[in-house]
Design a protein around this nucleic acid. Structure first.
Lengths: 352, 352
DNA sequence: CTCCGCTTCGCAAACGTTTACATTGCTTGT
DNA sequence: ACAAGCAATGTAAACGTTTGCGAAGCGGAG
């Protein structure tokens, strides 16, 4: 491996000059800068990241912690993150926690040594842990916000409230009056916010019942579907698409026609959603863009007033200036929702 | 941050002793070793990876390069890799190349500086590049093998030949005599091997035609489906599930019933395959285990004769000893395949 | 001509580890 | 009892880079 010394010797300058010339920013004569660049190129010099990190303290990599890579939503987030990170000349180290709090805590411990920039997607650890972590490293949250403490934590989340509202309105307009919410893990911030969303926006005549908390995988869908049938709802709103897909599968297995007997709405709009039978009506969340945006926040210079100002998203700076980005979502109506059957028990049983 | 010096001072020993005690392997008195461990624990000492890497030369992270994280197959591979890597106390840096050769080459250049262990999933760069890379770093291939050169390259691949054979036999037994193969990218080693598989095993009376090469995403499926219809095949075997899913979608859109008019078989068995309508018949590939196995190969001490010997897989060591692991695959028969319609043109048109 | 200020560059320290080699003290064989 | 060897630990160099500080060169102002 050719080192900075080799380049220095070949270019007839000192290592300091090479370092500065390559960094570009420092004051070095244009002539020498060009010469250094040429020789570095010629010798195929590539700086040793370990040495650089050792002296500067900052590494060139960001950490991405997410609960489940096999969930297409997080895969998309990861992809978005990955692209933006590479564009910035950085490298992304990824950790899958399997939706497990302890694993997550362990992983955070391992990563926070050595890495000073982290993106946490749907972290399950308590607020305190996140804030403590944010004190030591730059942290951006995805799918979660934590109350501003000494060190406010930046975040980017989908507009859960609006997403639930859109889904509910759609269902209501179709004629549904008795809807079940199949929730995600109790420790999930997203789930809590979505619950609050349907509790808050009480449409007169619309009853939304809690179907329980389920693991946000396809397996969780079977119990949720059974519960929905038992409770006699005419439509079910699922915490995410994975759960909705599981529900669809279970419903089909039990011979319950969708959307004739029960309508199903998901959340996320993963790529397969539109290829299912029936195609899943769901709230589209721009997963890749969320990932990319999180990287922007992580890389942004904390000092200057405001960034270039992404127009589309609502980037509210609270107090000390940790941006809380909220991304727009959009309901994609497909064929898993329809008017409830005219004489359906579920539709008629509800009190006016 | 507490350094090794802090620990040394607190424990009343030198930094060398601390280093040795923590490494465990060296000869240090049991008493002092315990004392060092305790104080390190108490001070919350965690070694600086940059410093360690600088002196040892070896980093604690492995690189994973894959073509598309949004393809559930690779997501699963990534998950498997991730777990095993973390279990080994390492960290995984991930790079998504978007199925693009140039991006891949760039990424490899960036990663190979700084990282000396790489896992390449379905790499698209020519053999030469891979071999050159293998000379500088430890490399394990997934879904590809390269001819043994000066530096043989380890690999782990699914049993493509057997997978295609199983799928074809299934189709043949069902009564299909005219099958189309919807291929993946021409630069894909897997595709080439699968093509060779159906060309090699010529069953009398079974005709397999090439439907062309497609991008292995769901979009690619529409053209492939159209081609299949135009060619009048009674069944189509897709390069992978993504393509098969796209084909299913296009067939449904054009009103062609599956499996009544055309049977469809995929490859990979991604999680959604069994939840599609109709549920996809496909060749199951143990993606997570492939990832995990690749890590094992990467970490394995190259010196000793043989590892503990994973029983189930055929780990053939060729010549110089770069293991070429072939993982068993298994056809999952679901409802996207059936006997061809009795009087179907496709079934009868074929010459005996 | 002298002195000052600016540009451009080199010197050398520092970052936190690992590890070859030196050192110490103790056991053991004779 | 003494040398030799071994076990346990300390000393210090080295890894490749960044960066504060000082030195040199040079032009212009007084």
């Amino acid at each position: 491996m050719t080192t900075i010394h080799d380049v220095a010797r070949a270019a007839g300058v000192s290592t300091a000059t090479v370092s500065r010339a390559l960094a570009g920013s420092a004051a070095v004569a244009p002539a020498t800068r060009a010469r250094v660049h040429r020789t570095a190129q010629r010798l195929g010099y590539v700086p040793n990241t370990a040495a650089r990190q050792l002296v500067t303290g900052r590494g060139q990599s960001i950490g991405l912690v997410l609960p489940d890579l096999e969930n297409p939503f997080y895969a998309a987030v990861a992809k978005g993150v990955q692209h933006r990170v590479r564009a910035a000349g950085f490298t992304a180290v990824m950790a899958d926690t399997d939706e497990d709090v302890d694993t997550e805590r362990t992983v955070l411990g391992q990563l926070s040594a050595g890495i000073d920039r982290l993106i946490l997607a749907s972290p399950r650890v308590p607020d305190g842990d996140v804030q403590e972590l944010a004190a030591r490293a730059r942290v951006v949250l995805i799918n979660r916000q934590v109350p501003a403490a000494q060190t406010p934590v930046a975040s980017v989340v989908p507009d859960n409230t609006d997403g639930i509202a859109q889904a509910l309105r759609h269902l209501y307009n179709l004629g549904h009056r008795h809807v079940g919410y199949a929730g995600g893990p109790a420790t999930s911030w997203s789930d809590a916010q979505r619950r609050r969303a349907y509790q808050g926006s009480s449409t007169p005549g619309l009853r939304v019942v809690d179907l329980g908390a389920y693991r946000p995988g396809q397996e969780g869908g079977v119990a949720a579907a059974d519960e929905a049938i038992a409770r006699g709802v005419s439509a079910v709103l699922a915490f995410n698409d994975q759960l909705a897909i599981g529900i669809l599968g279970r419903l089909a297995a039990r011979g319950v026609p969708v959307p004739e007997a029960i309508s199903v709405v998901g959340f996320d709009d993963v790529p397969v959603a539109r290829l299912l039978a029936p195609a899943l009506t769901t709230v589209a969340v721009p997963a890749q863009r969320i990932g990319a945006r999180a990287v922007d926040l992580l890389m942004a210079d904390p000092e200057p007033g405001n960034g270039p100002g992404h127009s589309e998203e609502d980037s509210r700076h609270d107090g000390d200036g940790a941006p809380q980005v909220v991304m727009d979502v959009e309901l994609r109506v497909r064929s898993s929702t329809a008017e409830p059957a005219a004489g359906s028990a579920a539709a008629s049983r509800v009190p006016v």
